[in-house]
Design a protein around this nucleic acid. Structure first.
Length: 827
RNA sequence: GCGAAGGUGGCGGAAUUGGCAGACGCGCCAGAUUCAGGUUCUGGUGGUGGAAACACUGUGCGGGUUCAAGUCCCGCCCUUCGCACCA
């Protein structure tokens, strides 16, 4: 290496620099979040991870680096920054592992968190670790349960029977995605079983959840949520049933097509199916309904399937024209949407058309094309709006009106005769909130028990009065999970906790009670963690109002788009409930939202263990350093884009940091030439702008340009090197700190003032612009920025090439846009 | 089917308001350093033709507007991601 005579320049060695600065930050509590009166605040939040056994993958640091850049930048801009991290630690993998190995999920979780924390720390994120929260901590669970009780007390948490996929062999409820043809993925039979479930009445907030999206600085996630909420304006129409006192209501957005209804179809789960079935059709209908209900939602909604149904034998009366139409049951009708029944208008609805074709039901057109074109509804439905025609009877006045007008007239008429009304319906369903699982928050609810003797004894008979739920007193929270040896849900759909009889049953004033044995879903903890971060140690309340005022709302929220609907909708819902209770003051929690794009493997495929294309951040930190990993992930492309990993790419970024190191630790000078100064100020401007707009890739590219220029100088201006260290520090914080300290500063640069640029210096006084002849580029010319046309023309014609294309031709027109272009139009 | 985003070199990607397409990085080529390999440094690098000067051509496809189009307008094609019988 060294020949012993010449001192060899010290090389950039992230492996020694990075741990040193991490220790420094920790020792000095550099990133402790505190509020100073008069200073602006900035709350930048990452979606906290589920600490899986696999540890961090390179996708995690992408979003975390982006948010960390903003956090570090805002500190240097004089903001009080709240940048916390924690663990969404309840969930299935730890429980599955527990069932397999007998290890308590608590131990697995603890171990995984330690790994995640070590990895995150090795990447130099500026979190205030004193605020770390863990959704499985009793101190956190306590407040999750407290919020649940608030929902319960307001009637927003209620019980209901909902059909679920129950697999007794696995002892668990399965998600629809895990069931095919009535079997689990490993072939065990699955039955559709109505189970008592806890539901949250999110539908009550549907309107506000849709309307309040308006004010948010969110990407197209807003559109996704709107679609998910699915607000739909239409009418509810009531049909009388021939020879019965029952009536059948349907929901439709096209009540203008009511005159063309030729049948009604109800969902198999519709409560009136039995009553509307005439005796001779009983057997057939029963068989159909039973087979339909056994299907999973996935199978039911398979679009490629032919529509099926069975005639119930009864007839309904069309309220508008007295037509007698048959009532069918069909599983293409969704039981939980609208009224669970539809009117069949085959001429103007594709689904009804398909159904009518299959069962040879009449197709009657009642909407004509507005242009007067002939419409053949025998082959396909005409679903566009048009002009009503063939409207008979009491509201014949609607005949000939446009569809929108006809809708109005018809619904008004229905209202008058008491057969219908305007109605708004939502796709959004109430949220099934219970899981038959061990590793989740216990519900703070118990029920009275009827029994003689001790219900904990296996031979005793008891009845739990589920319809009389009682809230656990807030002073008794948290309600902790019992310890178990076996974490599997077991054969009892009540779940694993049902076996913890000593925990489940208790006596009060001589009476027996039973605790709820369902637990909350994993979403519960993540619904409000951003609020706990503002006051994580509070024992008296979930958070204090002072700290709420100090930090909320979240200014920037960074996380994956896979949470675009569920997590982000659930959290907004809880926030609105908390708003109604008066414990939060904003109607929305997350002002600005950004989704980082997925990082694919080098083969362009999604990273997965089975493909063997997973990049482990630990290895990259070891081989190239954390700063290189951070900077490379930001350099790959736009934050939101999906982009493939390229190992050669990170080497390029490492070379860049090497050059920054060489230039900054080499010969320096106090002088600074004008060209360098100009480039420096342009770099400050661009990097600042690009951080604000989160265009990190172009910010880095600009710093590369500056660094390359500094490398061409005999000695780099001290002022430029100093500024570069500051500009680079949000991206490569360890290197930034190291250079800063080598430049002679004793303190961390974390709170150093962000560099500003001189507007006079970033403005060029001369520019090189293109010279075109007839729109084709023929040369370039350097001009003063405000040169007049005559000067521009003369200078352009000095270029022999330009001249040769212009010479001997008539100049028809000269286009000159200052600072942009010269264009000779010749003929 | 519906909704959204997007198609730019061999690759990842740049391109405020229409104004020199391809910044920056990777890769590749040549040169310098080196015993050599690697490292580092310098220069080159969209395509076609040409020894070269240079010319033509070029941002998914086809039209259009304009002095000028990756960018604006119309009509297609393709890709990715959501949602998917919601009446």
């Amino acid at each position: 290496m060294s020949d012993g005579e010449k001192p060899v320049a010290e090389r950039y060695d992230p492996a020694s620099i990075e741990p040193r600065w991490q220790a420094y930050w920790e020792k000095h509590e550099t990133f402790r979040a505190t509020r100073t009166p008069g200073k602006p605040k900035y709350y930048v939040l990452d979606m906290f991870p589920y600490p899986s056994g696999d540890g961090l993958h390179v996708g995690h640091p992408e979003g975390y680096t982006a948010s960390d850049i903003l956090a570090r930048y805002k500190r240097m801009r004089g903001f009080d920054v709240l940048h916390p991290m924690g663990w969404d630690a309840f969930g299935l993998p730890a429980e599955k592992y527990a069932i397999k190995t007998g290890t308590h999920p608590r131990d697995t979780t603890k171990k995984n968190i330690a790994t995640f924390k070590r990895q995150l720390k090795s990447l130099g994120f500026s979190y205030d670790w004193a605020r770390e929260v863990n959704t499985t901590d009793a101190n956190y669970v306590r407040w999750t349960q407290w919020i649940f009780l608030q929902l319960f007390k307001r009637g927003l948490a209620f019980q209901s029977e909902a059909p679920v996929n129950w697999c007794s062999a696995l002892g668990t409820v399965l998600a629809n995605e895990e069931v095919t043809d009535g079997k689990s993925d490993d072939g065990h039979p699955v039955v559709r079983l109505p189970l008592r479930q806890w539901m949250l009445r999110i539908t009550e907030y549907a309107d506000r959840l849709a309307a309040d999206l308006d004010g948010l600085n969110w990407p197209d996630t807003k559109a996704k949520q709107l679609h998910w909420i699915g607000r739909s304006e239409g009418a509810e129409i009531t049909f009388a049933i021939e020879g019965s006192s029952e009536v059948l209501s349907v929901f439709t957005t096209r009540c203008d097509t009511l005159p063309g209804a030729t049948f009604l179809t109800v969902a198999p789960e519709h409560p009136l199916v039995k009553k509307l079935t005439v005796a001779t059709h009983n057997a057939e209908v029963d068989a159909y309904v039973r087979s339909a209900l056994a299907k999973t939602d996935m199978d039911r909604t398979d679009l490629s399937r032919e529509k099926t149904g069975v005639f119930l034998g009864s007839y309904a009366i069309n309220p508008i024209n007295g037509d007698r139409v048959p009532v069918w049951v069909g599983d293409y009708v969704i039981g939980t949407y609208g009224t669970g029944a539809v009117m069949g208008v085959p001429a103007h609805d594709e689904r009804d058309h398909a159904f009518a074709k299959t069962y040879s039901l009449p197709i009657v057109a009642v909407v004509a094309s507005e242009t007067g074109e002939a419409i053949n509804v025998a082959d396909a439905a005409f679903t566009d709006d048009g002009v009503a025609h063939g409207v008979r009877g009491s509201i014949a006045i609607a005949d000939g009106t446009k569809s929108a007008e006809a809708r109005k007239l018809i619904v008004q008429h229905l209202e008058r005769i008491g057969r219908g009304n305007v109605r708004v319906t939502y796709r959004l369903r109430d949220w099934i909130f219970s899981r038959q699982r061990y590793w989740g928050e216990p519900m703070p609810i118990y029920f009275p028990v009827d029994c003689d003797g001790d219900p904990r004894r296996s031979e005793s008979q008891f009845t739990i009065r589920f319809n009389e739920p009682i809230a656990v007193d807030e002073s008794e929270l948290p309600l902790r999970l019992p310890d178990l040896d076996d974490f599997s849900p077991g054969e009892d759909p009540a779940g694993a906790l049902a076996r913890a009889t000593d925990w489940r049953f208790f006596q009060r004033e001589g009476k027996w009670f039973a605790r709820e044995t369902n637990t909350m879903p994993q979403w519960a903890g993540s619904c409000w963690y951003y609020l706990r971060f503002i006051d994580p140690k509070n024992d008296a309340a979930a958070w204090s109002q002072e700290l709420y005022d100090a930090w909320m709302p979240v200014d920037l929220y960074v996380g994956g788009s896979e949470h675009a609907v569920l997590h982000l909708l659930y959290a907004r819902f809880w926030h609105k409930v908390l708003f109604d209770i008066g414990v939060v003051k904003h109607n929305e929690p997350f002002t600005k939202l950004v989704h980082q794009g997925m990082i694919l493997g080098e083969d362009g495929q999604k990273m997965s263990k089975s493909r063997g294309n997973v990049i482990n951040p630990d290895h990259i930190v070891k081989s190239h350093g954390a700063d290189s990993l951070r900077a490379y992930e930001m350099f790959m492309g736009p934050l939101e884009a999906v982009k493939p990993w390229q190992t050669s790419g990170i080497e390029g970024v490492k070379r860049f940091l090497d050059r920054v190191w060489n230039v900054s630790t080499g010969a320096l000078t106090d002088a600074c030439d004008d060209g360098t100064k100009k480039l420096l100020h342009k770099t400050i401007q661009k990097v600042t702008h690009d951080i604000e707009t989160m265009h990190f890739n172009t910010a880095i590219s600009q710093m590369m340009v500056l660094t390359k220029h500094l490398g061409t100088l005999d000695a780099a201006p001290r002022q430029a090197v100093r500024t570069l260290a500051l500009l680079l520090s949000p991206f490569a914080p360890h290197l930034g700190e190291e250079l800063w300290s080598r430049l002679g500063f004793a303190q961390s640069l974390a709170y150093e003032t962000w560099p500003t640029f001189d507007p006079a210096l970033v403005k060029d006084d001369t520019v090189e612009i293109g010279v075109q002849v007839n729109g084709k580029l023929r040369g370039t010319v350097t001009l003063a920025i405000d040169a007049d046309e005559a000067t521009a023309k003369a200078a352009s014609l000095e270029d022999p090439k330009v001249l040769s294309f212009v010479e001997g031709k008539t100049l028809k027109k000269l286009v000159y846009v200052k600072g942009k272009i010269v264009n000779f139009i010749v003929g």
